[in-house]
Computed example of a mutant assay.
Amino acid sequence: MSDTDIGFVTFGDSGLHSSELQFGTWRFGRETAEGNLEIGEERAYELLDAYADAGGRYIDTADVYGGGDSERWIGNWLGERDRERYTVASKLYWQIRDGDPNSRGTNRKNIRHRVEASLERLDTDYLDVLYLHRWDEETPTRETMKTLNALVEEGKIHYLGASTYRPNGWRVAKANAIARAEGWEPFTVLQPRYNLVDREIEGEYLEMARNEGLAVCPWSPLGQGFLTGKYDREEGLTGESRASESTSFEESYLTEENFDAHDVLDAVAEEVDASPAQVALAWQLHRDGITAPIVGARTVEQLEENVAAVDIDLTEEQVERLTEAKGGPFAEL
Protein backbone atom coordinates (compact mmCIF):
# COMPACT_ATOMS: atom_id res chain seq x y z
CA MET A 1 0.00 0.00 0.00
CA SER A 2 1.04 3.63 -0.42
CA ASP A 3 2.00 5.99 2.38
CA THR A 4 -1.57 7.29 2.52
CA ASP A 5 -3.09 6.99 5.97
CA ILE A 6 -6.86 7.06 6.34
CA GLY A 7 -7.85 9.30 9.23
CA PHE A 8 -10.86 9.41 11.53
CA VAL A 9 -13.93 11.66 11.68
CA THR A 10 -16.67 12.08 14.27
CA PHE A 11 -19.77 9.95 13.72
CA GLY A 12 -22.58 12.47 13.87
CA ASP A 13 -23.40 13.55 17.42
CA SER A 14 -22.36 10.18 18.85
CA GLY A 15 -19.11 9.44 20.66
CA LEU A 16 -18.02 7.02 17.93
CA HIS A 17 -15.33 7.82 15.36
CA SER A 18 -15.37 6.49 11.79
CA SER A 19 -12.64 6.09 9.22
CA GLU A 20 -12.97 8.99 6.79
CA LEU A 21 -13.32 6.42 4.01
CA GLN A 22 -15.36 3.33 4.84
CA PHE A 23 -14.84 0.06 3.00
CA GLY A 24 -17.89 -1.50 1.33
CA THR A 25 -18.00 -5.23 0.67
CA TRP A 26 -21.15 -5.67 -1.42
CA ARG A 27 -19.15 -7.34 -4.20
CA PHE A 28 -17.77 -10.04 -1.90
CA GLY A 29 -19.17 -13.36 -3.12
CA ARG A 30 -21.45 -11.65 -5.64
CA GLU A 31 -22.21 -13.40 -8.91
CA THR A 32 -22.89 -11.36 -12.04
CA ALA A 33 -25.79 -12.10 -14.39
CA GLU A 34 -23.33 -14.13 -16.45
CA GLY A 35 -22.47 -16.29 -13.42
CA ASN A 36 -19.02 -14.77 -12.82
CA LEU A 37 -17.80 -14.19 -9.26
CA GLU A 38 -16.93 -10.53 -8.77
CA ILE A 39 -14.73 -10.98 -5.69
CA GLY A 40 -13.78 -14.39 -4.30
CA GLU A 41 -12.56 -15.24 -0.82
CA GLU A 42 -8.82 -14.86 -1.45
CA ARG A 43 -9.18 -11.45 -3.06
CA ALA A 44 -11.56 -10.36 -0.31
CA TYR A 45 -8.82 -10.97 2.25
CA GLU A 46 -6.31 -9.08 0.08
CA LEU A 47 -8.64 -6.08 -0.11
CA LEU A 48 -9.33 -6.11 3.62
CA ASP A 49 -5.57 -6.31 4.26
CA ALA A 50 -4.91 -3.36 1.95
CA TYR A 51 -7.63 -1.26 3.57
CA ALA A 52 -6.34 -2.03 7.07
CA ASP A 53 -2.74 -1.35 6.02
CA ALA A 54 -3.84 2.14 4.95
CA GLY A 55 -5.34 2.79 8.38
CA GLY A 56 -8.93 1.94 7.48
CA ARG A 57 -11.01 0.59 10.35
CA TYR A 58 -14.67 0.77 9.21
CA ILE A 59 -16.03 -2.25 7.30
CA ASP A 60 -19.53 -2.16 5.81
CA THR A 61 -21.44 -5.29 4.83
CA ALA A 62 -24.98 -6.79 4.79
CA ASP A 63 -26.38 -10.19 5.59
CA VAL A 64 -27.43 -10.77 1.96
CA TYR A 65 -24.09 -9.83 0.34
CA GLY A 66 -22.78 -12.93 -1.38
CA GLY A 67 -25.52 -14.99 0.25
CA GLY A 68 -23.80 -14.45 3.60
CA ASP A 69 -20.26 -15.04 2.32
CA SER A 70 -19.31 -11.39 2.82
CA GLU A 71 -20.02 -11.61 6.55
CA ARG A 72 -18.36 -15.04 6.83
CA TRP A 73 -15.18 -13.84 5.13
CA ILE A 74 -15.03 -10.69 7.23
CA GLY A 75 -15.48 -12.84 10.33
CA ASN A 76 -12.63 -15.13 9.26
CA TRP A 77 -10.41 -12.14 8.57
CA LEU A 78 -11.22 -10.49 11.91
CA GLY A 79 -10.42 -13.76 13.67
CA GLU A 80 -6.75 -13.08 12.98
CA ARG A 81 -6.92 -9.51 14.29
CA ASP A 82 -7.98 -7.41 17.26
CA ARG A 83 -11.75 -7.16 16.79
CA GLU A 84 -11.93 -4.08 18.99
CA ARG A 85 -9.85 -2.05 16.54
CA TYR A 86 -12.51 -2.36 13.82
CA THR A 87 -15.99 -0.93 13.38
CA VAL A 88 -18.24 -3.43 11.62
CA ALA A 89 -21.59 -2.43 10.15
CA SER A 90 -24.15 -4.80 8.67
CA LYS A 91 -27.71 -4.52 7.35
CA LEU A 92 -30.93 -6.49 7.21
CA TYR A 93 -34.28 -6.30 5.40
CA TRP A 94 -34.53 -8.41 2.23
CA GLN A 95 -36.54 -11.65 2.20
CA ILE A 96 -34.32 -14.69 2.73
CA ARG A 97 -36.79 -17.62 2.61
CA ASP A 98 -39.20 -18.22 -0.26
CA GLY A 99 -42.82 -18.31 0.81
CA ASP A 100 -42.07 -16.84 4.25
CA PRO A 101 -43.16 -13.20 4.57
CA ASN A 102 -41.76 -13.11 8.12
CA SER A 103 -38.23 -13.47 6.69
CA ARG A 104 -38.44 -9.96 5.26
CA GLY A 105 -38.63 -6.49 6.73
CA THR A 106 -38.21 -5.12 10.23
CA ASN A 107 -40.71 -7.10 12.28
CA ARG A 108 -39.47 -8.30 15.67
CA LYS A 109 -39.16 -11.97 14.63
CA ASN A 110 -37.09 -11.17 11.53
CA ILE A 111 -34.81 -8.61 13.19
CA ARG A 112 -33.89 -10.92 16.04
CA HIS A 113 -33.29 -13.93 13.78
CA ARG A 114 -31.23 -11.94 11.29
CA VAL A 115 -29.05 -10.25 13.92
CA GLU A 116 -28.22 -13.57 15.55
CA ALA A 117 -27.35 -15.07 12.15
CA SER A 118 -25.09 -12.11 11.30
CA LEU A 119 -23.27 -12.38 14.62
CA GLU A 120 -22.67 -16.07 14.00
CA ARG A 121 -21.31 -15.52 10.48
CA LEU A 122 -19.11 -12.65 11.63
CA ASP A 123 -18.01 -14.68 14.66
CA THR A 124 -18.49 -11.70 16.93
CA ASP A 125 -20.57 -10.87 20.00
CA TYR A 126 -21.81 -7.54 18.67
CA LEU A 127 -22.34 -5.31 15.65
CA ASP A 128 -20.99 -1.80 15.93
CA VAL A 129 -23.69 -0.53 13.58
CA LEU A 130 -26.88 -2.20 12.36
CA TYR A 131 -28.58 -0.60 9.38
CA LEU A 132 -32.13 -1.22 8.25
CA HIS A 133 -31.56 -1.71 4.53
CA ARG A 134 -34.98 -0.36 3.54
CA TRP A 135 -38.09 1.04 5.19
CA ASP A 136 -40.74 -1.56 6.06
CA GLU A 137 -44.19 -0.19 5.25
CA GLU A 138 -45.93 -3.12 6.96
CA THR A 139 -44.31 -3.06 10.41
CA PRO A 140 -45.22 -0.32 12.91
CA THR A 141 -42.32 1.99 13.61
CA ARG A 142 -42.78 1.53 17.35
CA GLU A 143 -42.32 -2.26 17.02
CA THR A 144 -39.13 -1.81 15.03
CA MET A 145 -37.57 0.77 17.34
CA LYS A 146 -38.50 -1.14 20.52
CA THR A 147 -36.94 -4.31 19.12
CA LEU A 148 -33.76 -2.50 18.10
CA ASN A 149 -33.51 -0.82 21.48
CA ALA A 150 -33.68 -4.18 23.25
CA LEU A 151 -30.78 -5.43 21.14
CA VAL A 152 -28.78 -2.33 22.07
CA GLU A 153 -29.52 -2.89 25.75
CA GLU A 154 -28.39 -6.52 25.38
CA GLY A 155 -25.07 -5.33 23.94
CA LYS A 156 -25.60 -7.01 20.56
CA ILE A 157 -25.76 -3.69 18.68
CA HIS A 158 -24.00 -0.43 19.51
CA TYR A 159 -25.50 2.06 17.03
CA LEU A 160 -28.50 2.11 14.67
CA GLY A 161 -28.58 3.25 11.06
CA ALA A 162 -31.01 3.69 8.18
CA SER A 163 -29.85 2.88 4.64
CA THR A 164 -31.38 4.16 1.39
CA TYR A 165 -34.33 5.88 3.07
CA ARG A 166 -34.59 8.83 0.71
CA PRO A 167 -37.22 10.16 0.09
CA ASN A 168 -38.28 8.82 3.49
CA GLY A 169 -36.19 11.14 5.64
CA TRP A 170 -39.31 12.15 7.53
CA ARG A 171 -39.72 8.52 8.59
CA VAL A 172 -36.29 8.59 10.22
CA ALA A 173 -37.20 11.78 12.08
CA LYS A 174 -40.49 10.18 13.19
CA ALA A 175 -38.71 7.01 14.34
CA ASN A 176 -36.20 9.06 16.32
CA ALA A 177 -39.00 11.10 17.90
CA ILE A 178 -40.69 7.88 19.06
CA ALA A 179 -37.41 6.46 20.34
CA ARG A 180 -36.51 9.58 22.31
CA ALA A 181 -40.00 9.88 23.79
CA GLU A 182 -39.70 6.29 25.07
CA GLY A 183 -36.08 6.56 26.16
CA TRP A 184 -34.98 4.15 23.42
CA GLU A 185 -31.93 4.26 21.18
CA PRO A 186 -32.49 6.47 18.08
CA PHE A 187 -30.86 6.23 14.68
CA THR A 188 -27.31 7.60 14.65
CA VAL A 189 -26.36 7.32 10.97
CA LEU A 190 -27.84 7.48 7.47
CA GLN A 191 -26.53 5.67 4.39
CA PRO A 192 -28.01 7.24 1.23
CA ARG A 193 -26.81 7.24 -2.35
CA TYR A 194 -24.84 10.41 -3.07
CA ASN A 195 -22.20 11.50 -5.57
CA LEU A 196 -21.34 14.31 -7.94
CA VAL A 197 -24.24 13.48 -10.30
CA ASP A 198 -26.71 11.89 -7.82
CA ARG A 199 -27.70 14.86 -5.69
CA GLU A 200 -31.22 13.96 -4.55
CA ILE A 201 -30.39 14.09 -0.81
CA GLU A 202 -29.45 17.75 -0.95
CA GLY A 203 -32.04 19.99 0.60
CA GLU A 204 -34.51 18.64 3.14
CA TYR A 205 -32.82 15.26 3.64
CA LEU A 206 -29.44 16.72 4.61
CA GLU A 207 -31.18 19.41 6.66
CA MET A 208 -32.99 16.66 8.57
CA ALA A 209 -29.69 14.86 9.14
CA ARG A 210 -28.11 18.04 10.52
CA ASN A 211 -31.11 18.70 12.74
CA GLU A 212 -31.03 15.14 14.10
CA GLY A 213 -27.24 15.14 14.53
CA LEU A 214 -26.90 12.14 12.21
CA ALA A 215 -23.79 10.92 10.47
CA VAL A 216 -24.20 10.63 6.67
CA CYS A 217 -22.13 7.88 5.00
CA PRO A 218 -23.04 7.69 1.30
CA TRP A 219 -22.84 4.64 -0.92
CA SER A 220 -22.01 4.80 -4.64
CA PRO A 221 -19.71 7.85 -4.31
CA LEU A 222 -18.36 7.09 -7.81
CA GLY A 223 -21.77 6.74 -9.44
CA GLN A 224 -21.46 2.99 -10.11
CA GLY A 225 -18.18 3.65 -11.90
CA PHE A 226 -19.40 6.52 -14.07
CA LEU A 227 -17.18 9.04 -12.27
CA THR A 228 -14.04 6.97 -12.83
CA GLY A 229 -13.93 8.13 -16.46
CA LYS A 230 -14.30 4.69 -18.03
CA TYR A 231 -17.38 5.62 -20.08
CA ASP A 232 -17.15 7.55 -23.32
CA ARG A 233 -19.53 10.38 -24.22
CA GLU A 234 -19.73 9.39 -27.89
CA GLU A 235 -19.61 5.61 -27.62
CA GLY A 236 -21.41 5.14 -24.30
CA LEU A 237 -21.49 1.49 -23.31
CA THR A 238 -19.73 -0.79 -25.73
CA GLY A 239 -18.49 -4.37 -25.73
CA GLU A 240 -17.82 -5.76 -22.27
CA SER A 241 -19.17 -2.64 -20.58
CA ARG A 242 -22.53 -2.97 -22.27
CA ALA A 243 -22.80 -6.63 -21.28
CA SER A 244 -22.12 -5.85 -17.62
CA GLU A 245 -24.36 -2.82 -17.15
CA SER A 246 -28.15 -2.49 -17.24
CA THR A 247 -30.31 -0.30 -19.42
CA SER A 248 -31.27 1.66 -16.30
CA PHE A 249 -27.60 2.49 -15.70
CA GLU A 250 -27.29 3.79 -19.24
CA GLU A 251 -30.43 5.92 -18.88
CA SER A 252 -29.49 7.21 -15.42
CA TYR A 253 -25.83 8.00 -15.94
CA LEU A 254 -24.92 8.28 -19.61
CA THR A 255 -26.69 11.60 -20.18
CA GLU A 256 -25.41 14.86 -21.63
CA GLU A 257 -25.96 16.59 -18.30
CA ASN A 258 -23.84 14.03 -16.49
CA PHE A 259 -21.09 14.09 -19.10
CA ASP A 260 -21.02 17.89 -18.81
CA ALA A 261 -20.46 17.49 -15.06
CA HIS A 262 -17.77 14.92 -15.82
CA ASP A 263 -15.99 17.49 -18.02
CA VAL A 264 -15.64 19.73 -14.96
CA LEU A 265 -14.44 16.75 -12.94
CA ASP A 266 -11.80 15.96 -15.56
CA ALA A 267 -10.62 19.57 -15.60
CA VAL A 268 -10.17 19.70 -11.82
CA ALA A 269 -8.46 16.29 -11.88
CA GLU A 270 -5.92 17.62 -14.34
CA GLU A 271 -5.33 20.71 -12.18
CA VAL A 272 -4.52 18.66 -9.07
CA ASP A 273 -2.76 15.81 -10.94
CA ALA A 274 -5.20 13.16 -9.80
CA SER A 275 -7.67 10.73 -11.36
CA PRO A 276 -11.36 11.64 -11.79
CA ALA A 277 -12.27 8.98 -9.22
CA GLN A 278 -9.93 10.51 -6.65
CA VAL A 279 -11.32 13.99 -7.19
CA ALA A 280 -14.92 12.75 -7.00
CA LEU A 281 -14.13 11.23 -3.61
CA ALA A 282 -12.14 14.26 -2.46
CA TRP A 283 -15.13 16.46 -3.33
CA GLN A 284 -17.29 14.43 -0.95
CA LEU A 285 -14.65 14.67 1.76
CA HIS A 286 -14.87 18.46 1.39
CA ARG A 287 -18.70 18.56 1.50
CA ASP A 288 -20.40 19.92 4.60
CA GLY A 289 -22.81 17.38 6.07
CA ILE A 290 -21.08 14.31 4.60
CA THR A 291 -19.32 12.15 7.19
CA ALA A 292 -17.53 9.38 5.27
CA PRO A 293 -18.18 7.90 1.82
CA ILE A 294 -18.19 4.13 1.37
CA VAL A 295 -15.68 2.95 -1.22
CA GLY A 296 -15.63 -0.42 -2.90
CA ALA A 297 -13.04 -1.92 -5.22
CA ARG A 298 -12.53 -5.06 -7.26
CA THR A 299 -8.73 -4.95 -7.02
CA VAL A 300 -6.10 -3.74 -4.58
CA GLU A 301 -4.94 -1.27 -7.23
CA GLN A 302 -8.41 0.29 -7.42
CA LEU A 303 -8.58 0.49 -3.64
CA GLU A 304 -5.17 2.18 -3.47
CA GLU A 305 -6.35 4.74 -6.02
CA ASN A 306 -9.50 5.44 -4.00
CA VAL A 307 -7.69 5.69 -0.68
CA ALA A 308 -5.26 8.27 -2.11
CA ALA A 309 -8.21 10.68 -2.34
CA VAL A 310 -7.77 11.53 1.35
CA ASP A 311 -4.52 13.34 0.47
CA ILE A 312 -6.08 15.58 -2.20
CA ASP A 313 -6.59 19.16 -1.04
CA LEU A 314 -9.13 20.96 -3.20
CA THR A 315 -9.44 24.73 -3.12
CA GLU A 316 -12.75 26.39 -2.25
CA GLU A 317 -13.02 27.47 -5.88
CA GLN A 318 -12.53 23.91 -7.14
CA VAL A 319 -15.10 22.52 -4.71
CA GLU A 320 -17.55 25.21 -5.81
CA ARG A 321 -17.00 24.43 -9.50
CA LEU A 322 -17.59 20.73 -8.90
CA THR A 323 -20.65 21.44 -6.79
CA GLU A 324 -22.16 23.68 -9.44
CA ALA A 325 -21.35 21.25 -12.27
CA LYS A 326 -24.64 19.51 -11.53
CA GLY A 327 -25.89 21.33 -8.49
CA GLY A 328 -29.49 22.20 -9.17
CA PRO A 329 -31.31 24.30 -6.58
CA PHE A 330 -29.27 23.03 -3.61
CA ALA A 331 -25.74 23.55 -4.89
CA GLU A 332 -25.04 26.06 -2.15
CA LEU A 333 -25.50 23.50 0.65
Rank of each mutant, 00 (worst) to 15 (best):
E154V: 11
I157F: 06
L37F: 05
L47A: 08
S246T: 15
R287Q: 15
L122I: 05
D49T: 08
T144L: 07
V272A: 06
R298L: 14
V129H: 00
M1G: 12
T141M: 15
D5N: 13
S163N: 03
E20N: 12
A309Q: 12
E71W: 05
E31P: 03
L130D: 03
I157W: 07
C217K: 01
R142L: 13
D98Y: 09
G29E: 03
F8A: 04
A173P: 03
L21G: 03
W283A: 02
A269N: 05
G203W: 06
A261P: 05
A292C: 01
N195L: 03
G223R: 00
P329D: 15
Y58W: 12
W77M: 08
T299F: 04
E84I: 04
Y65Q: 03
E41A: 13
E20R: 07
A33D: 14
R108F: 11
V172M: 09
E138I: 09
N195A: 06
E185D: 09
F8N: 00
H133S: 04
A179H: 08
G24I: 04
Q95F: 02
L127T: 02
N107D: 13
V172Q: 11
S275A: 02
E20G: 06
Q284C: 04
G105P: 00
S244E: 14
M208W: 01
E200S: 15
C217H: 08
T147W: 09
A162C: 09
E143I: 07
V172Y: 06
Y86R: 00
P167V: 12
L285H: 00
E185W: 03
V88A: 00
R104A: 13
G24H: 05
I312M: 12
N168D: 13
L151S: 07
D260L: 06
E38K: 06
P101Y: 10
